[in-house]
Design a protein around this nucleic acid. Sequence first.
DNA 1: ATTATAACTAAGCAAATGCTTAGTTATGTT
DNA 2: AACATAACTAAGCATTTGCTTAGTTATAAT
Lengths: 188, 188
Amino acid sequence: MARKKEYIEEEVIEKAMEVFWRNGYETTSVRMLEKEMGINQFSIYSSFGNKKGVFLKSLACYKGKVKLELIDKLQKSPEGINAIKQYFYDFINFSKESRTNKGCLITNTVNELGEKADQEIMSKIVNFATDVKTLFIEKLESNETKTAETIKKQANYLMVSLQGLSVASKMFNQEQLNDFIENTFESL
Amino acid sequence: MARKKEYIEEEVIEKAMEVFWRNGYETTSVRMLEKEMGINQFSIYSSFGNKKGVFLKSLACYKGKVKLELIDKLQKSPEGINAIKQYFYDFINFSKESRTNKGCLITNTVNELGEKADQEIMSKIVNFATDVKTLFIEKLESNETKTAETIKKQANYLMVSLQGLSVASKMFNQEQLNDFIENTFESL
DNA sequence: ATTATAACTAAGCAAATGCTTAGTTATGTT
DNA sequence: AACATAACTAAGCATTTGCTTAGTTATAAT
């Protein structure tokens, strides 16, 4: 009946995600997306509605990538707290682009948009954070001597620490990041 | 000989700093600065050269404000590690604007611009971070049982933790932030 | 009072922003 | 082969971006 799409939406969104990850939401222009995604603006708007639409799909794509490269490994690991520690180390490599780091797309977005972030964007972010925290709690529960209160507190601690790692990876060297991770898990 | 300025540069820069702090560098437009600083674009450009010039002065202003409201107190405190802990708590209030937090302007900037930040901006940021870290080291040294190696590691740990607190304060509640701070200082 | 100087106002510049739309091309069904 | 449909190209829209400039107004030394 009609012409076929010359691109695969999942494929071009992966490219878009990379751009947002590198540059942030506001700094990424539709022209940049056009170039990196390799499709015309018309196609972008007909597939994803608007710039925010592209970003929302990019967040979903990021989530998928994190699951595949980080979450699954953590979930499968027989270790408790050490598995989370490994997750911290893995995250650094995950976010590494050449010499420096791009941080975490979620953390980047929170930091950029803060409270004035769009509803839909914010709920996707909170959603993601909750999933990670839940998994951390599961892993912390493998130590049966800890009370529920302790586990809750430690999960909060780890979540904030992870945010710190994301930002710090952009300006601190590997040694400093290692010092951070080692010290972070010393008290747990 | 000539007309007098109708504004005080230090005063209008304080306004500019607030805008950059709230919105980030790229998202802040010269029109926004014009409105908030209460002076015409001509005056902005004649006093500060360009947008980057305004930002550099804003960073200096921020540094002064941090010194006055946070650093001085830390420096004067007779306590060691507990003074740093208090610094963490004080920082949260310092960055608080109504309900949510603006984070730390320095951290915000690192996170936004990352490695592609302008030379001058980056050196101002590194400068600031070094000063804070030096002070942390001084405070850690008040415990004479710690080796230089331990102190170095703990200072790195605290610096990254502080970044985490900055970002996390934008989306986490007070209880979660408290859990973080308490746990952070547990191992020190 | 005249004059040189600099701070002001406001209009305007090219380029970039997010998004749209008129017109063309390919595709599967009849 | 003809047709309906949707994906394509590319030009264009109004608005905003950082920055400039022509023209006016206030100031202080002469």
